[in-house]
Structure formats: structure tokens, C-alpha cells
């Protein structure tokens, strides 16, 4: 299988900027939409953009999972719940400005400080060109094999534990929504 983006410099940059713009723009739209159904649909667009970013990083398997599991299954679950609840119109007036601006400003400054600290801590990696790394490692031949080997060799116990977690989530969701426990 030929890799979609074989570490081509210009093509990589174009794909990155297109997908990043798509993801960020749809995320902002998702946050500002009043109707929750529109929020879900914009979030689906955002996840497709994120899947595109995964492709530019040659994480093909995760890109597929992102679209199938996230944009497909989880977002449909959100849509089901929104339509199940049948919200009244007054519930849709949801966007509100914080009523205590000072607290918001302080929180935003603290968040900014934290983000700057985290990003500057990864300074050694800043100059690393993604296209260069991809060219050096070579095109991924078999993305599923690359992720499957560590998953089932080094992380087998956490993988099995995840199945128990999912079972607990299913049972918990059913128990929570039952009318009479």
C-alpha cells in the first residue's frame, strides 16, 4: 500500500494547514452554536479534521478509528440523547457570558501560564520537522501491524482490563437510566 503522504514537503504543509483550519474553525463553531444538534454536527466535522491531522502524522489506524468510533458511534450516541430528551426552546438559550469577569480573567491568565509552561518544556522538539522525521523513518508499510504488536504484546493486560471497563460502563449506563432500580 502506498502511503497517502509520502513525506512530501509542500503537500504535507498544505494538508496540515487545511486540516488544522478545518478542525479549529469547526471547534469554534461547535462551541458557539446555540442548537445542540448543530453542535454535534460541527464536532463531527472537527473530528474529521483531526483524523486528517492523524493522516499527516502517518497514524492511519488512529485516523480510521477516529472517524469510525468517534465521529460515527459516539456522536450518534449524543444525537440519540439530544433527540430523546426533546428539549424545550428555553433550554436552547445556552450561551452565556461568565457573570464574574474578574474570576474569568484570573482563570484565563492561570491557564495561559500553564499552557506556556507546558509548551516551552517541549522546546527541544520544536525544530523537528515532521516531514523530515517521516522521510528518515520511511513510509509506514503496515500501520495496523505497528500499533497491534505493542498493543497485544506489551499492553495486553491493560487491553483486557479495558474490556472490563467497557462492560462496567454498559452496566452502569443501563442501571443509571432504569426507571425503577
Amino acid at each position: 500500500m502506498e502511503p497517502i503522504l509520502a513525506a512530501a514537503g509542500a503537500g504535507h504543509a498544505v494538508a496540515f494547514y487545511a486540516m488544522a483550519a478545518l478542525a479549529v474553525a469547526s471547534a469554534v463553531l461547535m462551541m458557539t452554536q446555540r442548537n445542540p444538534v448543530a453542535c454535534v454536527l460541527w464536532l463531527v466535522v472537527c473530528f474529521v479534521g483531526l483524523a486528517g491531522l492523524f493522516v499527516t502524522l502517518e497514524a492511519y489506524f488512529l485516523a480510521v478509528i477516529q472517524v469510525l468510533v468517534y465521529a460515527g458511534a459516539i456522536m450518534v450516541l449524543f444525537l440519540f440523547v439530544i433527540m430523546l430528551l426533546n428539549l424545550r426552546p428555553e433550554d436552547l438559550k445556552a450561551v452565556a457570558l461568565p457573570r464574574i469577569p474578574l474570576v474569568g480573567v484570573v482563570a484565563a491568565l492561570l491557564l495561559l501560564a500553564a499552557v506556556v509552561t507546558v509548551i516551552s518544556a517541549s522546546r527541544p522538539y520544536f525544530g523537528m520537522s515532521v516531514a523530515g522525521i517521516l522521510a528518515e523513518v520511511g513510509p509506514t508499510k503496515d500501520s495496523v501491524r505497528d500499533i497491534g504488536l505493542p498493543l497485544f504484546r506489551d499492553w495486553l493486560l491493560p487491553f483486557e482490563a479495558t474490556s472490563i471497563l467497557l462492560l462496567a460502563a454498559i452496566v452502569g449506563a443501563v442501571a443509571l437510566t432504569k426507571r425503577k432500580v
Partner: peptide
């Protein structure tokens, strides 16, 4: 590839978390 394995687990946990949170909302 361990980072991608971690993302795989994060997606799984996010699915479980979304199901339970939506049940709580209902």
C-alpha cells in the same frame, strides 16, 4: 508507537465515559 497505543486506550475510555455521562444526564 506506544503513544498511539495510549491514544487507542484514551479513545476507548472516552467512549465509556461518554456513555456513563449521557446516562447521568438522562
Amino acid at each position: 508507537m506506544q503513544g498511539q497505543v495510549f491514544v487507542f486506550f484514551a479513545i476507548t475510555v472516552a467512549a465509556a465515559e461518554a456513555a456513563v455521562m449521557l446516562a447521568i444526564i438522562i
